[in-house]
Write a protein that binds this DNA or RNA. Sequence first.
DNA 1: CCCATTGTTCTACTCGTGTAGCGTCCTGTC
DNA 2: GACAGGACGCTACACGAGTAGAACAATGGG
Lengths: 347, 347
Amino acid sequence: MTRDVRSVTRADVARLAGVSSAVVSYVVNDGPRPVAAATALRVREAMDLLGYRPNASARALRTGTTQTLGLVLGDSRNPFFTEYTFELVKAAAGLGKHVLIGDAHQYGQGDPAAIVEALVARQVDGLLFAAPHHGWTSRLAAASPVPFVLVDAPGPMPGVRSVGSAARAGAHELTRHLIADGRRHVALLIGEEGFGHPDPREAGWLSAHVEAAVRPGPVMRTSFTREGGYAGTVRLLQGQEQVDAIFASNDLQAIGALRALHEHGRPIPGDIALVSYDGTIEAEFAWPPLTVARQNVQAMARAALDLLAGPQPSAGRHVEIATQLIIRASCGCPVATTTASARAKES
Amino acid sequence: MTRDVRSVTRADVARLAGVSSAVVSYVVNDGPRPVAAATALRVREAMDLLGYRPNASARALRTGTTQTLGLVLGDSRNPFFTEYTFELVKAAAGLGKHVLIGDAHQYGQGDPAAIVEALVARQVDGLLFAAPHHGWTSRLAAASPVPFVLVDAPGPMPGVRSVGSAARAGAHELTRHLIADGRRHVALLIGEEGFGHPDPREAGWLSAHVEAAVRPGPVMRTSFTREGGYAGTVRLLQGQEQVDAIFASNDLQAIGALRALHEHGRPIPGDIALVSYDGTIEAEFAWPPLTVARQNVQAMARAALDLLAGPQPSAGRHVEIATQLIIRASCGCPVATTTASARAKES
DNA sequence: CCCATTGTTCTACTCGTGTAGCGTCCTGTC
DNA sequence: GACAGGACGCTACACGAGTAGAACAATGGG
């Protein structure tokens, strides 16, 4: 039919409807000026007939806004981030915005500013950072001329808007559950020290021990990957310290731990209980299904977009979303139910 | 410093460098006209000093190309598609292009044209369809005014450019491996009939049986989800027919099957072998690790972009990428090695 | 009947970039 | 010394949409 739909322009519609191009704009945008009902109808008919679609580039040029957000991703193999990504895409679509993906890997880990520039050059209205390298944050903040939020921050940072889970409370609750079940040697799998803040998951794990007056189990530092979880667990099993439960700080580590435990023939949860922080679908369909502190990815995505759209307090702002304790087979407790954890709070 | 980086324009650079704005363009684009070396240097210094970034919207308006591709995604919870997504993003970045994500779910399954329109209105240069609903294809093709390719097609379709794996060969090889190991009752987990083409995975599974003169095992039709794999496997275990191996048609079904087998206390591979088609990281870190026909997602992503960029044959074109047989513990065979399957071919 | 007011529409400029058409100057050759 | 030709650079317009300012018509009040 029409050779090229993109070539239908405002002027074409105006000509067909017998009006000026301004009127077409007013109709399209329910514009700043009123249009007589009869005229608007003629214009709408002309638009339908021609299959008119306003040119987004021209609009962006004129208005300075693209209705597009840039998402900087660090680890695309982590199911938590992929789930997060798609929740963000969905939430953005609900606001009529699209998401442009910038994978940090391809630009080389060394230069976060390059990613930001590539996205900013595309005229994105805002940036979402899901890059786990918290060391980047300050440089990213400096490099970004547009509003941005960290979508997975461990805690508040001055001058930065961020969203995170109530990780300390979630980890505390998860650990307390293990202790209440009778576990007395809960090892912690976690990332390297100085990876930004003191890790709130470690703090929660520790505080649950303090609260119950139980001596904390061993801490194993490794990477937040399947391989890291595997290697860390093997080291735990070969070590001197007694272990009757493992707290993995994300699902990837838990999946790796699972393999190590299976390979060593240690029954779960009979011999060693295993719980995890994140609670992606992978943890749900692992064997045995994992008891987790589930991050509310959907709520986090919405909060991130709210922060981006809202006013820009120079002091920064951190929104914390509650996690949810989901009890499955891997902790070996009798009940299998669900409890809401600490309520959402802000700081 | 500069109040708003986006506000630095070509004219600012020209003024600082003491040249006209055209010259700045020529330098930026290594433009259609030559520029004296000394002048170019001055311009470049001015650009650096001001932090000039060409406005992508204005460029897109002028040139009619956005250097952006739209990706229509059907199932964002399938690790195969998420891996594919990020390979596409990476491959596109290598060509200086970005990817705009359109999640089919949010628009409602009923109207694929709406997704296309939303993306096309954003001036994407091309479309990539990863929507598994093959029934959509013709409508999508009709709705798309820009070049498009199917990135996960089961076979050639007239007038459509598409990429797929050599699924029949891969399934054949995988099944043959099971039979060679002594399995004689290989059940097939697969999707509903009429889901587009006759499924090449079913054909490969069947042809391996014919080749070995072994009577094919039961066929279980279910959805391509974890839940579907679980339910299908439970039905298989409760059914009359003997089963000593299960061929899952994708990793999701395999993960579900794994849970069912574990729940029923059927040792893998001792009692029942399990293999899967896809070969994402989830299959690698399952317990036991799954023997798979791995789709070469990276090669598929590159092929898809090549097809999109290349000439547009009206007859359509289908590129097939070879799968790779990866032997792990779940099939119970003695060796654990890797074999390349049928080489890439085109049709 | 005139004029102010309101409602509706048109004209014209703007956003920032790509590039065609047209100088301008410089060099080499007869 | 005049002139052809090349190397550079500048001016000016187009891309498609948003919207302010002006124009025009219709209406009501005095």
